[in-house]
Write a protein that binds this DNA or RNA. Structure first.
Lengths: 148, 148
DNA sequence: CAGTATCCCTCAAGATACTG
DNA sequence: CAGTATCTTGAGGGATACTG
């Protein structure tokens, strides 16, 4: 289960990822899933998205192996959407998006929701690329090697 | 210059960031910018995007303070688009997108372009969220604190 | 070369009604 | 509640022609 069917054939991982999750709603659904949302109506209320669109996006996420459908726990005959391993693996991406937004899209002092490390109660530290030697890696310290 | 004008008023940084850069082309333009592309036609050729769309996206990126317009270096009367500081700050996000794509959207052995650490020639190590104590932070070790 | 101006078309998205 | 079905709208996007 390494590559979902029906992904684009772009050789660039950025492009391929972008074509799968780079739309208006998908990452927000994933964000909610990390936040514990599991049911259709809860996603719908939280996002204010049209039902047919939500239905479509959930199906795509399931097809892509990012969400899985489970029978509801509490006796309900209905199902729940939970992150798979590939879905949980999106955590760094959602965190990067969140942290960039926090840094660049809010005025100083403007309130925003925040991700808190449960163990300490402190905000999660900024996630930065590191070189093998542990130093912070800047954009200029890396280059793309195209495939042969 | 901490918050670009005309961003959405979402209190969630993920939503706000998503509404700014979460479309089909914007992150690919940024990716190309990291890759050294600076000129209109080069973006256009690289992406195959329609000119009017490219024009619109570049303007939005400039308005958002992610790209800046500079006079071309080599005598040309024309201009170049370069990443600002806020734009360079997108490096972790683009890297997270790339690395997730590499992990989840390619079959084992399937070729893809790759980000290489210049100093060592090695692929850039996976970027992971870290707790203050240096341990890898999993999704379940953090929770969103909504604003008061 | 670096865009702008049009025209056109498709699909994302919203609204609403309906079904198990 | 959890969706599906249908209709309509508008924005996103492609192609082409035009301008400085």
């Amino acid at each position: 289960m390494t590559k979902p069917a029906h992904t684009s054939n772009e050789p660039c991982p950025v492009a391929r990822a972008s074509s799968l999750i780079g739309d208006r709603w998908t990452l927000l659904i994933v964000r909610d899933a990390f936040d514990g949302v599991r049911r259709f109506s809860d996603f719908q209320r939280s996002l204010g998205v049209a039902r047919n669109i939500l239905s479509d996006r959930l199906r795509r996420l399931v097809d892509a192996g990012i969400l899985a459908v489970q029978p509801a726990r509490e006796g309900g005959a209905y199902q729940e959407y939970v992150l798979t391993e590939a879905g949980e693996d999106l955590f760094p991406l959602v965190l990067a998006l969140r942290q960039w937004g926090e840094r660049q899209l809010f005025s100083p002092g403007e309130a925003h929701s925040e991700l808190i490390e449960t163990a300490t109660g402190e905000p999660v530290a900024p996630m930065l690329p590191r070189a093998r030697d542990g130093k912070v890696l800047m954009a200029h310290d890396a280059t793309v090697r195209k495939l042969a």
